[in-house]
């Protein structure tokens, strides 16, 4: 498989992956292109890897974590996120969409590793071992980031909504 064939087959999926990680259109494009640029320069090494796609995703993921560590994010955490709908409301598709929107807003409160772990696990379907290999950390650390990330999301979503006039 040459570089063009790879990008034709997997480019859009990579763009989506980068966007799910960053939540920012410009940053996602930049992350995708930067990762593909690195892969392009070392294409022989990429194709020699057992799973070339996983190799490129590792570049994207680590670049994302490095970027967040360096201290800048165009995402601004929301001040207050309302409760999710009450139990039973999920049967209503509109309310489920609203719940998803609220969860989406809460994602910006995650640390870079928490978000990377949850995206790899719940978007890419990676198991703990694959996530650990991608992030170059121990599986126990993966489980810890996942658990803390979920706890963080639950905490943010359980904060009460403050009426505008009381802020």
């Amino acid at each position: 498989m040459d570089f063009d064939e790879y990008v034709a087959a997997r480019g859009q999926a990579l763009e989506r992956f980068a966007y799910v990680l960053t939540g920012d259109a410009h940053r996602a494009q930049d992350l995708t292109q930067t990762a593909l640029l690195k892969a392009y320069r070392h294409w022989r090494r990429v194709t020699a890897a057992e799973h070339p796609d996983a190799y490129v995703r590792r570049i994207v993921t680590r670049s994302y974590v490095d970027w967040r560590r360096r201290g800048s994010s165009r995402e601004e955490p929301v001040d207050v996120v309302p409760d999710l709908p009450e139990e039973g409301a999920s049967a209503d598709p509109a309310e489920r969409v609203a719940a998803r929107d609220e969860l989406r807003r809460a994602l910006v409160t995650l640390s870079p590793k928490q978000r990377a772990v949850l995206v790899l696990r719940d978007y890419e379907g990676y198991d703990d071992a694959a996530i650990a290999a991608t992030l170059d950390c121990a599986e126990a650390s993966v489980r810890s980031h996942a658990s803390r990330g979920l706890a963080r999301l639950r905490a943010v979503l359980s904060e009460p909504t403050v009426p505008e006039e009381l802020r």
């Binding site: 859009q12 989506r16 259109a25 996602a28 998803r100 969860l103 989406r104 978007y123 999301l153 639950r154």
Partner: peptide
Amino acid sequence: VEDLLPETLTAVGHDAP
């Protein structure tokens, strides 16, 4: 949250440029 997360992330991915 754990139940909603996969579909939420998929929905985010659909908005990717």
